[in-house]
Design a protein around this nucleic acid. Structure first.
Lengths: 332, 332
DNA sequence: CTGTTAGCGCATTCAC
DNA sequence: GTGAATGCGCTAACAG
């Protein structure tokens, strides 16, 4: 391995001069600079980032830690990456994985040290686990769970999105709108917030909200959704609208309806949440809530940049506005 | 920050004993061991992974480098992660991004140093760029592009999958099977290999393959697929089967057909490639090729483990078998 | 089984 | 504008 001192010897300068040429912290006069650059080129030298990290304390790396790689954070991650790169850093993804052990490991001081800052998706983490994160390292939380006040946090306007979705169907004639994946009771967490928006829409429209139409899910998978909704339909539950708390849930719901020959949107209107790409290509297209990933990415990076710059402003809790995207699964 | 020497002092032992307790390289007698563990607990010590890396040369980290986070590699990544963890390492994802600059940076010696091994998805990289990767670090290439012989490589049985897909439609009566996203000419690269399989199926079935039915795409997006196929249909091209080179392309094709009221599978049969989850929930379900991600993950990690263990076996080029998954978009 | 020595490659600090 | 010394925190190699 060719090191900085090899380059220094080749160029006839000290290591410090090489270092300065590389990171530009101090001015180096052009002729010296050129000699160094020539030597670097000739020897094929590249800095050892690990040594730089140990010495300087900076890693120039930001981590986005997600529950799993396949989930919807991939889309957000692609929007976060260029913003992080603008700040001269790179983004890496880690996953917490399924086991509590690996989850805790992802959040250990040792691992957090590897990064200048961490964006942590809280989808898979309970509050207790978050409370136990002991570090003053820059962290911004992302996601729809309730989080400790002391963290910066970016989440969606869950309740507002659910209200928009439900009001849209009520305004188009639905009177029995099922909220698929909605949690009864409570007022925090994605499922509860979205159920609350469903209630608000009913109240505003003067339509009674039947609590029998709040149908919880455990995995929020399309598979579970299809099974659970199918069971209800087969049991004769009367439904003329479905607010699925995610597009994935909506996908399962559409399959359950199609399995039974129930027409969308004529018999039952359907609205999802997330604006997955697939929704555009279904027939009919899926009406949904656009979660505004660009704005999520911008907010998250803005908050993290502030922390990484050493800002000690009070924690900020950003709620990103969302909007309704109307397609064919609801009536004109 | 509490360091190893703090722990050593607290426990009344040398740093080496602390180090040995932590990494288990040498036996430490239980009473000593307990004193060390108690001191670690008391002080809340955690190793500095950067220092360990600089000293030992190991990072205990494997990187999976992909063109973008949102694409289909998320699914493979989730299967690779546990296998990497079994080997006592963690997996991180990086993306090459769009710009050639960041792509080259991802492959720089400096960055590759950060990892014990690298799994590199070649989807976004041309051969020239790969040739220029100068390092003897453990690397395994993943994906359907042609790659230099000197690398280990895992790819799908593209041609066989395409043959299965096309033969399935020909056997069920299609005589004008369009290959959407197939590249004319050549015999390397995903699109060409899949077109070759389409040709093979025709030859085996004794059906002439009309080269006018080879329709190239540039982005392989659902959007492009919908537009391109729509244009052909509107121009009156006669088609009674579509082999879409990816499920995403199939999604766009299904939308183009639905836009025009063309029935699937009665008027046109459709087969995709990738077995994306969404295919199960469409109506009708999408017949497709299961790319066997489990086997891709296993092969990739096996090859990488061998390189990381210092094996100097000749480069291995694994072709992972695929299978046809029959759903409603083709006839019974 | 445990300790001592040395140094991984770089950037901070202080000198000139 | 450039150089010399020092040490970030850890572990390999060698003693004992």
């Amino acid at each position: 391995m060719v090191t900085m001192s090899d380059v220094a010897r080749e160029a006839g300068v000290s290591m410090m001069t090489v270092s300065n040429v590389l990171n530009g912290h101090r001015r180096v006069v052009p002729p010296t600079r050129d000699r160094v650059l020539t030597a670097i080129e000739k020897l094929g030298y590249e800095v050892n980032l690990t040594a730089r990290h140990l010495r300087s304390g900076r890693t120039d790396t930001v981590a986005l830690i997600v529950p799993g790689f396949h989930d919807y954070y991939g889309d957000v991650a692609d929007r976060i990456a260029p913003l992080v790169e603008e700040g001269g850093r790179r983004l890496v993804l880690e996953r917490t994985g399924a086991s509590p052990r690996s989850e805790i490991e992802s959040l250990s001081v040792a691992r957090l040290q590897m990064y200048d800052g961490v964006l942590l998706s809280v989808a898979g983490l309970d509050r207790e686990r978050l409370e136990s994160v002991r570090t003053k390292a820059p962290i911004v939380l992302l996601g729809e769970r309730e989080v400790p006040q002391r963290f910066d946090h970016v989440q969606l306007a869950n309740e507002e999105g659910a209200r928009l979705a439900t009001a849209h169907m009520l305004a188009r004639g639905s009177r029995r709108v099922l909220v698929l994946g909605g949690a009864p009771g409570e007022t925090s967490g994605m499922a509860s917030l979205r159920r609350a928006g469903w209630e608000t829409a009913h109240r505003e429209a003067g339509v009674p909200a039947d609590s029998a139409l709040v149908v919880p899910l455990t995995t929020y998978s399309a598979h579970e959704s299809r099974e659970v909704l199918g069971g209800l339909l087969d049991a004769g539950v009367h439904v003329d609208g479905i607010f699925a708390v995610t597009d994935t849930v909506a996908l399962g719901a559409l399959a359950a309806l199609a399995d039974r020959g129930i027409g969308v949107p004529d018999d039952v209107q359907v609205v999802g949440f997330d604006d997955l790409d697939v929704g555009k290509y279904l027939s009919p297209g899926l009406t949904t809530i656009d979660p505004n990933h660009d704005e999520v990415a911008r907010s998250a990076v803005r908050l993290l940049d502030r922390r990484m710059a050493g800002g000690d402003d009070p924690p900020e809790h950003v709620v990103v506005p969302v909007r309704l995207v109307v397609r064919g699964s609801t009536r004109a």
